[in-house]
């Protein structure tokens, strides 16, 4: 793998993490500061579609970003540019924070109601189903971000704090 390919892969990985983290952060901010219904329109509607498992194909599609990012990280002990490294750390941390906040807040009945009452998916038309689906989706997201954080740190500091810039 050439250095250019590694840089492109690192950038793609960063982009995926950044988009996921930004999406979760946006949703968390809407949950915290707005009182509007959320399940019927973007981003809440997309969140419901995302957490709703209907077929193995969907699960496979949803796993693509996880696999791509981990694959790229594992691909190599490539040298990360500082801005990508720190950027990845920042978006991973914000992703963990946003997902954790959503995980806690969506247990609240009034908050969950803002999603399931407007849900486009038949399987998520009540509190219990929404909370169950939300838990089984957000926990892997958090694990993904934590895993990324660990792998980025592992790549950056392979031998305990050796800066490879």
């Amino acid at each position: 793998m050439t250095a250019q390919q590694k840089r492109a892969a690192a950038f793609l990985s960063f982009l995926l993490i950044a988009l996921t983290s930004a999406f979760l952060l946006w949703l968390a901010l809407l949950v915290a500061w707005s009182s509007q219904p959320l399940g019927g329109e973007f981003p809440g509607r997309f969140f419901i579609l995302l957490i709703h498992d209907v077929s193995s194909l969907q699960i496979a599609l949803k796993s693509v970003p996880f696999l791509v990012v981990f694959g790229i990280s594992l691909l190599g002990n490539y040298q990360l540019r500082d801005w990508i490294f720190y950027g990845t750390i920042a978006v991973s941390v914000s992703g963990i924070a946003a997902a954790t906040y959503l995980l806690m807040e969506l247990n609240a009945i009034p908050t969950a109601r803002r999603f399931w009452q407007y849900s486009p998916v038949e399987g998520l038309h009540d509190y219990q189903s929404l909370v169950a689906a939300m838990r089984s989706s957000l926990v892997p997201f958090i694990a993904w971000f934590v895993g990324l954080l660990a792998s980025q740190l592992g790549i950056k500091f392979p031998r305990g704090g050796d800066d490879a810039t």
């Binding site: 219904p37 399931w116 009452q117 009540d126």
Partner: peptide, 11 residues
């Protein structure tokens, strides 16, 4: 009379 009960109160 005609009614089919709903499980939850959807919009």
């Amino acid at each position: 009379l005609s009614m089919t009960p709903a499980k939850s109160c959807l919009k």
